[in-house]
Simulated scan of single mutants.
Amino acid sequence: MPRFMVFVRATPSSEGAAEPTPEILSAVGTYNASLLAAGVLLAGEGLVPSSRDSVRITPGASPKVEEGPFPTNELVSGWWILKVKDVQEAVEWARKCPEGCGVLEVRRIAEMEDFGEALGEEGRKREAEMREQMEKLARGE
């Protein structure tokens, strides 16, 4: 079953100094519980404003490192990873997100088969081993 990432786009409010209201935190908590109860939630987190502990690194011969804050229209303020049957189901869940979260973007997470033959047998083996190690870490092993 495919996995989808639902990005929450940042807003001036999410990037501001004010904390989220208890009402929105409660609504998002209820939403998260519904995702979990349905068995579709794999992970999800909110992000602190880009003015706190945020760095952008632009690759190149001499990578450029910039500290936040960054323009709101370039930011994500949170995310969920859902495991659902298709993009339509991911969109259905995203549409249930409480008012006040901001603009959402739904994108399918690439799987090994999405890379065709370019990954090669060795690349597939290495990727499978890496995923197994990540799952062990997630379980605390």
Rank of each mutant, 00 (worst) to 15 (best):
M1E: 14
R3V: 14
M5A: 14
M5H: 15
F7N: 12
R9H: 15
A10H: 05
T11D: 05
T11Y: 08
T11K: 03
G16W: 01
A18R: 11
P20L: 02
E23A: 14
E23G: 04
I24C: 02
I24E: 00
I24F: 04
S26D: 13
A27R: 09
T30M: 11
T30C: 03
T30G: 07
Y31S: 11
Y31K: 05
A33Y: 11
A33F: 06
L36C: 00
A37M: 04
G39Q: 11
V40A: 03
G44W: 09
V48K: 10
V48G: 08
R52N: 05
V55E: 02
R56T: 14
I57N: 03
T58R: 14
P59K: 01
P59L: 01
P59I: 02
P59H: 02
G60D: 11
A61D: 11
S62C: 00
S62Y: 07
S62V: 13
V65K: 06
E66Q: 14
E66A: 12
E66I: 12
E67Q: 15
E67D: 13
P69I: 10
F70T: 03
T72D: 03
L75Y: 04
L75R: 02
V76T: 15
V76L: 02
G78S: 09
G78R: 09
G78E: 12
G78M: 13
G78D: 12
W80D: 03
V84I: 03
V84D: 06
D86A: 03
V87P: 00
V87R: 04
Q88A: 14
A90Y: 01
A90I: 01
V91E: 04
E92I: 13
E92F: 15
A94R: 10
R95V: 06
R95T: 08
K96A: 04
C97W: 00
P98M: 10
P98E: 04
E99S: 10
E99L: 06
G100W: 01
G100D: 03
C101E: 03
V103C: 06
E105C: 11
R107Q: 08
R108K: 13
M112L: 13
M112K: 11
F115G: 04
G116C: 08
G116K: 12
A118W: 10
L119Y: 10
L119H: 08
L119T: 13
R124A: 01
K125A: 12
R126F: 04
A128V: 10
E129W: 06
E129N: 12
R131G: 09
R131C: 07
E132H: 09
E132V: 11
M134N: 13
E135A: 15
E135I: 09
K136W: 00
K136R: 15
A138Q: 08
A138L: 07
E141Q: 07
E141V: 00
